[in-house]
C-alpha cells in the first residue's frame, strides 16, 4: 500500500480552483511577456507627405508630459497610473448609422497600411509639440463599415475604468470621455487614428492602444484609448461641452484670434523651447482645412 503524507494531499479548495490557478498562471506568464514585447514592438510605417518638416519633440517629453484626465489632473501623474491599464486584448466597435457595423481587434488594425505622420500638436492650455505619430487615416476605418447617408457626425468614446482611474471615481467630468467630429472633418485625410509613436506601438500615457489625432484642433478633441466609434445624425454633446460649454466648443479649431475666456491663444510654448511661438490659424494646417469652415463665424463656432 502506498503511503501518502497528509502534506501531499492537495487541499480541496485548491483542487476545485485548479482552473483558476492555471488561468492565473497563464495570465501571469502572458503579462510578463506582453508589456516587454509590446514596449519593443516596432511598427512598419511608410513616411507620409502630410508630415511637417519641423524637428519632432523628444520621445521622453511626448510620453511624460500631457493630459490624460482620467488618470490625473496634472501633466505627469498619468504616466505611472496608466501603466495599470491593460491594452490587450482590445477591441473597438464601429457602429451607429453604418451599413456594416463591426468590432475590430487591435491586432487587425495594426495590420492596416500604416504611415508615419509628423504633426504639430497644440494644447488648449498653450503648449505645443511636434509628434511623429504612426497610424492610418480615420477614413480607412470608416469606409470599411459603409456610413449611411444620414450619418452626419462621428463620436469617439474612450475607455473608462474607475478601479484604476482616480478622476473617474471622483467624477471630475461626465465620463466616459466623449469627443466628436463632423463627418467631413472625420473623413479629412489629415484626421488620423494613431496606433504608434516614434515607430513603436503607442505608449499608454499617450492613449494606447489607439487614439484620435486631429492636428488642426486643440488636443482635447483627440480622444485617447478609444473603445467605441459611433456614427450619428446629431452633434454629439462632448464631455467638455457638458462640463464647461462657454470655454470648450465643439469645433475647437486652433485659432490665435479667438482667446480662451481665461487666457490668450495668440502664442504657444513649444516644449523644449524658451521663447513662445506665434500660434498659427488651424495650427498651421489652414491650407488643407480652412475650406471646411468657409462662411462660418469661427468666433461663434469656437
Amino acid at each position: 500500500m502506498m503511503h501518502i503524507l497528509p502534506s501531499e494531499i492537495t487541499p480541496a479548495q485548491t483542487y476545485f480552483d485548479r482552473r483558476k490557478f492555471i488561468g492565473a498562471a497563464g495570465a501571469l506568464a502572458l503579462s510578463g511577456l506582453l508589456p516587454a514585447s509590446a514596449a519593443a514592438q516596432s511598427l512598419i510605417a511608410r513616411k507620409s507627405p502630410l508630415s511637417v518638416l519641423e524637428t519632432p519633440t523628444p520621445r521622453d517629453d511626448i510620453v511624460n508630459y500631457g493630459n490624460f484626465l482620467e488618470f490625473a489632473s496634472d501633466k505627469h501623474g498619468h504616466v505611472e497610473r496608466s501603466k495599470l491599464m491593460a491594452v490587450r486584448p482590445w477591441t473597438v466597435t464601429v457602429e451607429g448609422l453604418v451599413a456594416k457595423p463591426r468590432r475590430f481587434a487591435i491586432e487587425d488594425l495594426l495590420k492596416l497600411p500604416l504611415e508615419e505622420r509628423i504633426y504639430r500638436h497644440r494644447c488648449v492650455e498653450g503648449w505645443s509639440m511636434v509628434v511623429p505619430w504612426v497610424g492610418f487615416p480615420l477614413s480607412a476605418l470608416l469606409n470599411q463599415v459603409e456610413p449611411l447617408g444620414n450619418a452626419k457626425y462621428v463620436e469617439f468614446i474612450s475607455h473608462v475604468d474607475p478601479a484604476i482611474m482616480p478622476n473617474v471615481r471622483r467624477q471630475l467630468l461626465d465620463w466616459p470621455y466623449l469627443e466628436g467630429l463632423r463627418m467631413d472633418e472625420a473623413l479629412h485625410p489629415l484626421t488620423l487614428i494613431a496606433v504608434g509613436l516614434y515607430g513603436e506601438v503607442l505608449p499608454k500615457p499617450n492613449g494606447a492602444p489607439l487614439r484620435l489625432v486631429v492636428p488642426w484642433k486643440y488636443g482635447y478633441k483627440s480622444a485617447k484609448s478609444i473603445v467605441s466609434i459611433r456614427l450619428v445624425e446629431h452633434p454629439p454633446n462632448t464631455v467638455w461641452m457638458k462640463a464647461v460649454p462657454d470655454e470648450y466648443g465643439f469645433y475647437a479649431n486652433v485659432n490665435p484670434g479667438v482667446d480662451h475666456p481665461r487666457w490668450s491663444q495668440a502664442k504657444e510654448r513649444r516644449i523644449g523651447e524658451f521663447f513662445k511661438r506665434t500660434t498659427l490659424p488651424f495650427n498651421g494646417y489652414a491650407d488643407q482645412v480652412a475650406s471646411l469652415y468657409a462662411g462660418m463665424d469661427l468666433r461663434k463656432f469656437f
Binding site: D61, Y65, K75, W127, R269, G272
Partner: peptide, 12 residues
C-alpha cells in the same frame, strides 16, 4: 534648473 530636472516644461 541646473540639473535640467524640472520636467518637459520647466518654465511652467
Amino acid at each position: 534648473a541646473w540639473q535640467d530636472a524640472l520636467g518637459p516644461n520647466p518654465i511652467e
